[in-house]
């Protein structure tokens, strides 16, 4: 793979914007972020892009590549059709700051509304705990999350219905699940999950799970078990029956 490729990049600010085409040389092994950097260095020094580790570990360079939510640093050009222009857009679910950069600060504010970790009393006099690897592994899956917010980007409750004030989205359900299933945690977040964080809005379309660059089984392993906890607490028919009697 050598030669030129065209990148159709959305450029603009909160008020206006549109696509600009950039033609740039490409080589074997390049990822989308490399092409963006080359365009930035050679043609558009003020092109706004957010990135950090360039190794799929920090979750900064999320964007929509040919309409698919992806990390620019982990999307190889060899996986794209370079005979057509490659479209690059900012994530749609969050307000644009400029070009490919969006304002994701809502995620940080929403996270604060989730009750923090609260461990049980230590198991040993030296203040330490004992945990089994199997119990830890279940939660470690959730803690792989790099907070790229691609799952938030595709969630229709946020993307189409803009329920940012009532709903916390898949990333933060994964966070809540990591706390709820933490072997040491004794906090209760079930009421909040139903009332404050509206987990009921999620109708398990699994879009979030499909775009997760860390392959976290968001829907099945995090959201559904949380929904079950809510149902057990509030909608158990037997409990309701006993209550009536």
């Amino acid at each position: 793979m050598a030669g030129n490729a065209t990148f159709r990049i959305w450029r603009g600010d909160p008020v206006s914007g549109g696509f600009t085409d950039y033609v740039t040389p490409v080589e074997e092994g390049m990822v989308v972020l490399d092409a963006v950097h080359r365009i930035q260095a050679e043609q558009a020094p003020d092109l706004a892009v957010r990135w950090n580790c360039k190794a799929g570990k920090c979750g900064s360079c999320s964007a929509e590549i040919n309409g698919m939510p992806k990390l620019m640093c982990m999307t190889r050009l060899s996986k794209l059709n370079l005979n057509e222009p490659v479209t690059l857009e900012p994530m749609h679910t969050f307000p644009v700051i400029r070009d490919l950069v969006t304002d994701v600060s809502w995620n940080f504010r929403a996270k604060k509304t989730i009750k923090p970790f609260k461990p049980r009393t230590p198991d040993n006099p030296d203040g330490t705990w004992l945990m089994q690897q199997a119990d830890v592994e279940r939660v470690q899956e959730f803690r792989k999350c790099i907070e790229c917010y691609l799952c938030q980007d595709v969630c229709h409750v946020l993307r189409e219905h803009h329920k940012h004030d009532e709903f916390i989205g898949p990333r933060l359900f994964v966070y809540a699940a990591a706390l709820e299933m933490h072997p040491l945690d004794i906090e209760d977040r079930v009421i909040d999950l139903r009332k404050k964080h509206s987990i009921g809005y999620c109708n398990i379309t699994t879009c979030c799970r499909k775009v997760c660059p860390e392959s976290i089984t968001i829907t099945e392993n995090a959201i559904i078990p949380l929904k079950e906890r809510v149902v057990d607490r509030f909608f158990d028919p037997l409990k309701t029956l006993f209550h009536i009697i």
């Binding site: 600010d13 930035q40 020094p45 003020d46 092109l47 706004a48 892009v49 700051i97 400029r98 070009d99 950069v101």
Partner: peptide
């Protein structure tokens, strides 16, 4: 540097 001060990587 060209452009304005908003998120200007240059």
């Amino acid at each position: 540097i060209g452009g304005n001060r908003q998120y200007n990587n240059g």
